[in-house]
């Protein structure tokens, strides 16, 4: 058969298995099942209702951010201020409501507005200057880290907020961010419900809407996307603001769970979010990945984080496992992407 007679590879029928194996999240799904089975067999507590509730909640707070970070990574950008944003919003609410007596609901809403403004600023600077988002958001990370320390100290005289649960309306707001849904023997905590909702919405947006197509397009090739009418500026701005909004949500979930906030809250967490997104199939080059994959990446993290404890192992090894998991995931994703014909 001559070169000219070769069939177009796009028209060649592929098996269901090949199609499934090309999905960006497949590696994370397989790994999650493996981790689940491993800890189920090696511990007595892991699959008890209380055990499931605990590792699901651990996964959820990481997962909400991981899903938002995944969307941004698919769109071709990073946000290294995502972790510290959780602390900024929690401290902001604590200071407004605790120190200045602002209504707690209003403080929570103002914190969301602040988060969206910071996200918009990140996006605007990246778009205006053409600088890598890695650098811009690294700068934001340091700015927010400094503000979290200096402003908290300046306004409250300390670097850790206490007595949050004494604020009027705390337990009312907690219904939204810290309540528990009892389903038989299972206690489903609020973060888990938020996690499911966020993952479902993100997956629907990516797979079923024009906005999702735009996200993949700007991450894959922004110039080409603009040429075919994609609103790249609006899309990228929305992605940065979504990540910041997710930071606000996780900040509120943590604040109303523990009832205290440290000036160092969230520092270093941004790397875990990126790890979960990459484990879930996101490419560092953009244009490829999935929200459901990031959710499974977070599940792997949460199961491992608590599974190590349930197994009675030294949990100093957790970070080592994370590094190995990241490297393995990147290699799997690279292999899958090559087969799928995605640029890496």
């Amino acid at each position: 058969m001559t070169e000219r007679e070769k069939p177009d590879e796009r028209a060649v029928a592929t098996s269901h298995l090949t199609t499934v194996m090309r999905r960006p999240e497949i590696g994370a799904v397989i790994a999650a099942v493996a981790v689940l089975v491993f800890f189920a067999l090696n511990t007595t507590t892991f699959l008890t209702p209380a055990g499931i509730s605990t590792w699901l909640e651990s996964s959820a707070t990481i997962g909400i951010m991981a899903v938002a970070v995944a969307l941004l990574m698919i769109g071709g950008h990073f946000d290294l201020s995502a972790g510290v944003m959780t602390g900024t919003t929690a401290l902001f609410v604590g200071i407004l409501a605790g120190t200045y007596g602002v209504n707690l609901w209003l403080a929570v809403i103002l914190a969301l507005v602040l988060a969206l403004a910071i996200g918009a600023a990140n996006g605007a600077i990246v778009l205006r200057t053409g600088l890598p988002s890695f650098i811009v958001t690294l700068a934001t990370f340091f700015i927010l880290q400094g503000i979290n320390l200096a402003v908290t100290k300046l306004l409250t005289g300390t670097v850790a907020l206490q007595g949050i649960d004494k604020i009027s309306g705390f337990f009312t707001v907690r219904q939204l961010f810290g309540s528990t849904l009892h389903l038989g023997p299972f206690a489903i905590k609020a973060p888990v419900i938020w996690f499911i909702v966020v993952t479902a919405i993100a997956t629907w947006v990516l797979q079923r809407t024009r906005v999702g197509n735009h996200i993949f397009a700007v991450g894959g090739d922004r110039s080409a996307a603009r040429a075919v009418g994609v609103r790249d500026i609006r899309t990228i701005m929305a992605l940065f603001m979504t990540t910041s909004a997710a930071g606000w949500l996780v900040g509120m979930l943590a604040l109303f769970k523990v009832g205290t906030a440290q000036a160092t809250t969230g520092v270093g967490q941004e790397f875990i979010y990126i790890i979960c997104a990459v484990v879930g199939g996101c490419m560092l080059t953009g244009g490829f990945g999935s929200a459901i994959g990031a959710a499974f990446g977070a599940l792997i993290y949460g199961m491992t984080y608590q599974g190590i404890v349930y197994a009675g192992w030294d949990n100093n090894w957790l970070k080592t496992f994370l590094g190995i998991m990241l490297l393995a995931a990147v290699l799997v994703n690279w292999s899958v992407a090559r087969r799928a014909g995605v640029r890496s």
């Binding site: 707070t61 972790g83 602390g87 979930l253 943590a254 906030a261 160092t264 270093g268 404890v309």
Partner: peptide, 15 residues
């Protein structure tokens, strides 16, 4: 840096 995770980890250990 993650007090919610601190709470979960201690819970897991006690469970």
């Amino acid at each position: 840096a993650d007090l919610a995770a601190v709470q979960n980890t201690v819970t897991a250990k006690l469970q």
